[in-house]
């Protein structure tokens, strides 16, 4: 049936059969006394079993993956597709998380690939020192994401008189104008002031959160704040931070966040905490706590 072999076929989706050509995908690097490769994660679909690649006093959790599916072009295409990107990210994260559950591990970014074990080994060897430093830094610690939002409901609920919000927008030929231009401008101004006040109090709240969490953390990294396409239009992200926190302080963190949430001046402020994460944000440092 399949009779016309296209020499110049531009498609890059041959079945994953391509004999023998595998790339080495690195998920994480840990100390060589790490118990074993994680048994409850499977890595990327279509790849081989997870295994440990020993490099001196370090070892890496790796997987053989079909080179055709992980070539630069193929990856560009796949990671540009939302569903596929999510699948890859979750597969990657699954292995990283399973690895850190067994002991400290430095997570690699998505799609850290080598043409073979030897190349991977050489790259890790070359950076042994920074891996050891990173492992020392993260041992016994985990990453927490703390985000602070100002909710839309707070903005509107606290607005003064409702009629202000009903003031028609200025513009050529707008309908009847029940009030004088001056009153209208006053309203505009006071609305503007209100907005600024809300923003300022939200920023102050975020600073309070940061100060409180910072006391528990050994390091922190500010992260790219999310826009409304992520947060939803009814809230604005004021702060997006990652903190590296000792594992035995999880309860303190929970208590601190609980206290802040209950505080009366946090009305209309949302604090969003996720974790513990594998220390993705701290493999190359982060600001040390207390040195703000």
């Amino acid at each position: 049936m399949n009779s016309t072999p296209h020499i110049s076929a531009p498609r890059i989706s041959p079945p994953a059969k391509s004999v023998g050509s595998c790339a080495t995908y690195v998920f994480a690097v840990c100390r060589s006394d790490h118990p074993a490769s994680p048994s409850d994660a499977h890595g990327h679909a279509g790849g081989g079993p997870l295994r440990l690649l020993t490099v001196g006093s370090l070892c890496a959790v790796v997987q053989d993956v079909p080179a055709t599916e992980f070539s630069e072009t193929a990856l560009r295409e796949r990671l540009g597709d939302a569903a596929e990107l999510e699948r890859c990210a979750r597969a990657h994260h699954g292995v990283v998380t399973a690895t850190t559950a067994d002991g400290p591990a430095v997570p690699m970014p998505l799609a850290t690939l080598y043409l073979g074990d030897e190349r991977a080994r050489a790259a890790i060897e070359e950076n042994q020192e920074s891996f050891r430093l990173a492992l020392d830094r993260i041992t016994g610690r985990a990453e927490w994401a703390v985000k602070v939002y100002l909710t839309q409901s707070a903005t509107t609920a606290r607005s003064v008189a409702p009629d202000i919000r009903q003031t028609p927008a200025p513009g050529p030929g707008t309908g009847p104008r029940p009030v004088s231009g001056r009153a209208y401008l006053d309203r505009l101004r006071s609305r503007q002031n209100l907005r600024e006040q809300h923003r300022e109090s939200a920023v102050a709240a975020a600073e309070r959160v940061d100060r409180a969490v910072r006391e528990l953390a050994v390091a922190m990294v500010p992260r790219r704040p999310h826009g409304p396409e992520v947060t939803g239009k009814d809230r604005t992200q004021i702060m997006n931070m990652a903190y590296l926190i000792a594992e035995d302080r999880n309860e303190e963190l929970a208590a601190t966040i609980g206290r802040l949430r209950a505080s009366p001046d946090f009305d209309g402020i949302e604090i969003d905490v996720t974790g513990p994460w594998a220390p993705y944000s701290f493999t190359d440092g982060g600001d040390l706590a207390g040195h703000s």
Binding site: L110, A111, T112, R223, Y280
Partner: peptide, 28 residues
Amino acid sequence: ATAPIGVPLVDLLDRVLGTGVVISGDLV
């Protein structure tokens, strides 16, 4: 849960894509 997409996924992508690269891979 008003956010249009699961916040953890966004956090996850921030992390797996945006973290500092410790070593450079052949393709990374």
